[in-house]
Write a protein that binds this DNA or RNA. Structure first.
Lengths: 215, 215
DNA sequence: ACCTGAACACCGTTCAAGT
DNA sequence: ACCTGAACACCGTTCAAGT
């Protein structure tokens, strides 16, 4: 009974490692087979084709997100800490996030934290459709900003401002200078999250009241 | 002096139309050449390879964004209306946005609206590094949520909630039901935008004060 | 059950050759 | 200046064949 040369586990591990190293674009079935020292076709037997392989990798990410820490004295703090933890993991798994995005399964990433968020919102008295809206607003903020930061950081060469767009007589020199340096996505994320959670801190004004901004 | 069979303009037009119809993934150089009734290699002479072609398409999107409308009685309303207009255009140009994203040039999309936003923020007395932060928070919100919505809507089959994740004894039946229906991304966007702009409405509290949520 | 090589139908891109 | 076909070096996937 000779041991198999590879297992499905080993295929996923190797694929994840390769992708984390070189990115999704440079990942090929043939390269993976080469790394595992098997024929390409062997991979098809173990895990199926490229799509099945990526499905499996995304499922791994989902599992990881099911065990995120959540700390804090108040419910709002716990929501914020969960959002930060989720974001950190997504940044760490940039390439898996990119895969999920390219496969249009980003909304699946809501699921592992939904129950925890719902529980904290319930503690704040936010329930029903209101809770669904806030929950999704937080998740969209966490995930979409991570998706975008990933692309932005990779293309950081273009992030520096083109000064030619600003006339020299623009009065706010400090602003122009601030825009010249690369975006601090962590700060932007935290600012946005804080804004999203602000209405939850002071009583509970109707979160669906848009203040007439709908334009 | 025979007229050329194709021009660079015509190539870009045809490419944009094809991509808008079938998506980026199904777009190929050979298919484009076929549609134009020329040899593939002719395209290389006119606009260069795939990368150059996509660069050109993204530049077209940038041009479009330079002429967005901005209306409203107050500066905050004008910022909101600009954000909504930018979002609408990005949704309309979903596939071009996807191209920009895949090429890591999403931050470039900030540029065409930066001056207008800076002007309105200045009217509100928000300047310097604070203005840069708010400006980027708004732009990240607009662009990243559009990037994500695009993927989410394409994969809408997965958007419906898996009820098995909720135990039957979860108390908030209305929430579970709300999560079962597909996400209303417009509502989520408006809610987030309103939250981002709220501190600008009532005086100007320090926007970098995170209320201790940094976790 | 596991692994292989050959083969198919694609890609993007280069380049010498035509007019 | 403009357009072509042939050719190169890749892809992912299928399938019959081996053990």
């Amino acid at each position: 009974m000779p041991e198999p040369a590879v297992t499905a586990e080993a295929v996923f591990d190797a694929a994840a490692a390769m992708i984390e190293l070189d990115g999704v674009d440079r990942f090929t079935m043939r390269g993976l087979a080469n790394r595992l020292n098997v024929a390409v076709t062997s991979i098809y037997w173990h895990v199926g084709g490229r799509d099945k392989l990526f499905d499996g990798l995304v499922d791994r990410l989902l599992d990881e997100m099911a065990h995120l820490p959540m700390t804090g004295d108040t419910a709002v703090d716990r929501i914020a800490s969960l959002a930060h933890a989720q974001r950190r993991l997504l940044i760490q798994r940039q390439h898996l996030l990119a895969i999920a995005h390219s496969r249009d399964t980003t909304p699946k990433l809501f699921l592992p934290v939904q129950r925890a968020l719902a529980g904290q919102l319930a503690e704040l008295g936010v329930t029903g459709a209101d809770a669904a809206l806030v929950l999704r607003a937080v998740e969209v903020h966490v995930i979409s900003s991570a998706v975008m930061q990933f692309a932005a950081v990779r293309g950081d060469k273009h992030d520096e401002e083109d000064p030619s767009l600003w006339t020299d007589d623009w009065p706010d020199r400090a602003l122009v200078e601030a825009l010249q340096s690369p975006t601090d996505y962590d700060a932007v994320f935290t600012y946005g999250l804080q804004a999203l959670l602000a209405p939850l801190r002071a009583g509970q004004p109707d979160p669906t009241d848009d203040g007439g901004v709908t334009a």
